[in-house]
Design a binder for these strands. Structure first.
Length: 620
DNA sequence: AGCACGCCGACT
DNA sequence: GTCGGCGTGCTC
């Protein structure tokens, strides 16, 4: 007996092993096999009769039966083709963690098969998918799930923080235990939860990304919470949005889908507009009093306009709490004389400036360097931070309110372990004012908050990223929804007439989606066309340039695409790194395949490497 | 001659 | 992704 196995490596090929006597394996099963002399974990994708002369032998099976049925394997193949991630890395990323040592199946093992190794649905009978918006969406979701009592359920959240709350809510509403597959739980628990689903001992699960393929019996309901959240396309392989996977899985296996979001992605809104997705808007919900502060000509030296400063003083005097929102953690460093913006010489994006550490760092390549004293361009000495990142805003607020206890909440300052401590200090009122990025709204309860100040969303509105408006809209809407009608929302902006600002503060969704869809249609952005970004990295500037030109020439020969010429990411003259943006139709991955496959297959044999990002969430 | 480093092919 | 073989070039 011979088995074909794929591994977590960036290669499309499978490796062939002989199955030793006493071991039984099936397609979809997880196994250990030697690769480059060391045992590694892979997935069996094929079995056939044969002697297997000269082949190495499988070492062991990990579970007694397959983890992935035919339908899930077909889905992983689809994900791999859509995302240009190898089939092996796709499969390995989407199966549960390894079992605890005691539960491992050694030699010999027996293939028991799973309770429901799902076959492909005979006819794709996925009921119409539903998009839930509105302030009461969670409650309406729970009602829908209660009506579907007895069906399987897989509820996917964008990050671990919300998994616990959802598990609790489901349990108290539906009255049955919910399997936890989110990465917030220990590995052995996640493995056991997956196995319980496999056996049919559980049929409801809450999870994060790695639970996308969890075995729920069809027809089940697949729920994607906060479908607009960029966290649904996290770093790492496979590079694909969970929304796309959930919709395709439902089609293949015959599940139904519910997407929820206060501010749906423009893609999903459009799907609903064109009838491919049902939309249920629910009630608009309570809204805060909103003040839009026109900060044109102001805000040079302080993140606090007089109106916001007064608002903070009054809120504190009445015993309320304050949340100040920034749109990014770090500021950039710019020359006050010539306007030169300090960028990473390799990557071309502005370097993040930390005044505390007196250093600049690159978000892409991780390069760190001491903050310079003089401008490399004009030799001027007026280098100053640009924009209100969390660090700089915090310093300014501490200066303005020296006797106030101020806390900062963002990915850089708060560790998963430190979050409960801050939450405690917020709950007991020892922290009266918190400055943070949008995650702060999920981490802290709004009960005693009476003021939210958005320092400014202008940075988002001016980014050369077609999704920036959507992100600004989502931030403002989330801030208002958090506060409800308990307080005041103050937005400082130099663009008070911008449709993103007007729609958000006016609690009027159509005011955002209508002009946004028009803009995207005119310029050929999603959902009207699909995007792909190629990043070309070379060891030498000349090689990188040559490879970028080659990619560009080859792509330009394909029909039905718009291919933009190679450009350094960001605005500075690059060298080692180039970026090519491609626009195409719904089948963009297939359109690109004849050109990309030979180039990707060369790997490091060429003058550089090419990375493919389909459907990018941010273009910066 | 001896070693460090970087490049490149191979992985069953 | 990761390992190891091998060539270039520098040092003792």
């Amino acid at each position: 007996m011979i088995a074909e196995v794929i591994f977590d490596i960036p290669l499309e090929r499978a490796f062939t092993y002989v199955v030793p006597p006493g071991l039984t394996v099936a397609v979809g099963q997880r196994v250990r096999a030697p690769l480059q002399g060391k045992p590694r974990v892979g997935i069996v994708i094929g079995c056939r009769e044969g002697a297997g002369d000269g082949l190495k032998a499988l070492e062991a099976t990990v579970e007694p039966g397959p983890l992935l049925g035919p339908a899930q394997l077909a889905l992983t193949r689809w994900i791999s083709k859509e995302s240009y991630s190898s089939w092996g890395s796709t499969c390995v990323a989407l199966v549960p963690p390894l079992p605890p040592r005691a539960e491992r199946v050694g030699l010999p093992g027996s293939a028991t098969g799973s309770a429901h190794a799902h076959e492909l649905a005979a006819s794709a009978v996925s009921e119409k998918a539903l998009l839930l918006t509105g302030a009461d969406r969670d409650e309406r979701l729970l009602s829908l799930l209660a009506e579907a009592e007895g069906r399987g359920l897989l509820l996917l959240v964008p990050e671990i923080g919300t998994a616990e709350a959802w598990a609790g809510r489901l349990q108290s509403r539906l009255g049955q235990p919910v399997a936890r597959l989110d990465s917030g739980r220990p590995e052995h628990e996640r493995w056991r939860a997956w196995m319980a689903l496999e056996r049919g001992a559980a049929r409801r699960a809450v999870g994060t990304r790695s639970a996308l393929l969890a075995p729920v019996p069809p027809p089940a309901t697949l729920v994607l919470i906060d479908e607009h959240d960029p966290a649904h396309k996290p770093p790492g392989h496979p590079r694909i949005h969970s929304r796309a996977v959930v919709l395709e899985r439902a089609r293949l296996e015959g599940h139904s889908v519910i997407l929820t979001s206060p501010t749906p992605s423009v893609e999903s809104w459009w799907q609903a507009d064109s009838g491919r997705l049902g939309r249920s808007d629910g009630s608009p919900g309570p809204w805060p009093a909103v003040t839009v502060v026109d900060s044109r000509g102001a805000l040079r030296g302080s993140p606090l306009s007089p109106a916001l400063r007064r608002g903070i003083e009054q809120t504190l005097a009445r015993g309320g709490q304050v949340c100040l929102l920034v749109t990014r953690i770090a500021s950039a460093l710019a020359c006050g004389e010539c306007g030169f913006l300090l960028r990473c010489p390799d990557c071309g994006i502005p370097l993040a400036y930390s005044r505390v550490r007196r250093e600049c760092s690159c978000r892409l390549c991780g390069r760190r360097e001491r903050a310079p004293d003089t401008c490399a361009h004009c030799l001027g000495r007026q280098l100053a931070p640009l924009g209100w990142g969390a660090e700089r805003a915090e310093q300014a607020v501490r200066q303005a309110f020296p006797r106030l206890t101020v806390a900062r909440y963002d990915a850089e300052t708060v560790t998963p372990a430190g979050a409960p401590r801050l939450r405690q200090r917020w709950d007991d009122g020892s922290v009266r004012l918190v400055i943070g990025t949008r995650q702060v709204l999920k981490a802290l309860p709004p009960a005693r908050a009476r003021l939210v100040g958005v320092i400014t969303p202008d940075h988002l509105l001016r980014l050369p990223d077609f999704r920036a408006g959507e992100r600004a809209f989502a931030l403002l809407w989330a801030a208002a929804e958090w506060l409800k009608d308990r307080g005041r929302l103050i937005v400082q902006t130099q663009h008070p007439e911008h449709y993103v600002i007007r729609a958000a503060v006016g609690q009027e969704q159509a005011g955002f989606y209508k002009p946004e869809l028009r803009f995207r249609a005119e310029l050929g952005y999603p959902p009207f066309r699909r995007l792909c970004v190629l990043t070309i990295k070379g060891r030498h500037a000349s090689g990188a340039r040559a490879l970028a030109d080659e990619c560009w020439r080859e792509l330009a020969r394909l029909d039905g695409l718009s291919v933009y010429p190679p450009a350094p990411p960001g605005r500075s003259a690059g060298g080692l790194r180039w970026r090519i943006v491609v626009k195409g139709g719904n089948d963009l991955p297939e359109q690109l395949r004849p050109v990309l496959t030979p180039i990707l297959d060369r790997r490091r044999a060429g003058p550089g490497v090419v990375e493919v990002e389909m459907d990018p969430v941010e273009l910066i």
